[in-house]
Design a protein around this nucleic acid. Structure first.
Lengths: 153, 153
DNA sequence: TTTTCGGTTCTCTTTTTACAGAACTAACAA
DNA sequence: TTGTTAGTTCTGTAAAAAGAGAACCGAAAA
């Protein structure tokens, strides 16, 4: 396949978005490519050609994406190539991981509170509020998905 | 003040946590310092000395943190120094920003869906589910904070 | 069994990041 | 008016990240 201008531009923007999340440039662009690719999957060679990067870079990026459980590959009978695709089925699990990750700060908030000597201070009480909220938030996550499921069924 | 071993170690861990979120090392450690600092605030000079870094690095990091609305400074009469502290009051706004940020992917999902030609495919329908969920999620955010408020009052 | 294909690994280069250090500046102080 | 304080800005640099390119490797094909 050949990428349209619109597709190329989308890939770049999706790439930058993921870069801001801490991923390396090529990783983000590969995710972009797999999203806009007409077949929703691509071979190793195709990725190299469509993104104009080296085999080594693609190899490393794909290894990373597979380790992070974001990409899988399938094979086809009589074809040695691997067909890489995003695990779109798993958006729920992935999103849940993201939510838990941002709530992870609770660990530090709690440790800080334990360590501080000014327990009664305004500072500590604010931090305690935050910690309480984070606990509440974590507990709310499952019900969030359930409520969504109920709404769309 | 002087930092205890436990405080130093906490600062490093908080620093690394923020690094993983894409912030530069010193920015994360300054946030850590302001969290564990006995006074919950620190002067420019103190930050330089306690973290053992250069003035320029601290200046840039503080400028960044203020631009991101994470840190403010106060002054005291007859004292030219600035006392930098975290905006702990704003944890709610900050957390909301984080949530909106991870939901930002919806923009791309929707653009991808618009661009794709295989509208009826399994791939597209999964992506549409995800987009619907993200919309639902964004709408749920205010009520999340309200429910928390109600619970703790 | 040799060649080809599909991908990996290693080494080297380029680019970017993060910071140091010194010069600089604005405000106040002596 | 000169000096001091508190911080900023500029320039250089060490280290790390990102990727190129070539050598390599294993499985399958010829």
């Amino acid at each position: 396949m050949v990428l349209s201008e619109k597709q190329k531009e989308l890939i770049e923007r999706i790439g930058v978005f993921h870069e801001h999340k801490g991923m390396q440039p090529l990783v983000g662009r590969i995710m972009g490519l797999l999203l806009v690719h007409d077949d929703a999957e691509a071979t190793f060679e195709e990725i190299v050609e469509l993104l104009g990067v080296s085999k080594s870079a693609v190899s490393n990026a794909l290894t990373f994406l597979q380790a992070k459980d974001r990409v899988v590959y399938t094979t086809k009978p009589g074809d040695r190539k691997r067909y890489f695709k995003l695990k779109v089925n798993d958006w729920r699990a992935e999103f849940e991981r993201d939510l838990l990750k941002i709530a992870e700060i609770k660990t530090f908030v709690d440790e800080v509170l334990e360590e501080r000597k000014d327990k009664g201070s305004d500072f500590c009480s604010r931090m305690q509020d935050f910690s309480n909220f984070l606990e509440f938030f974590k507990q709310e996550i499952p019900s969030l998905f359930e409520r969504f499921k109920k709404k769309y069924s």
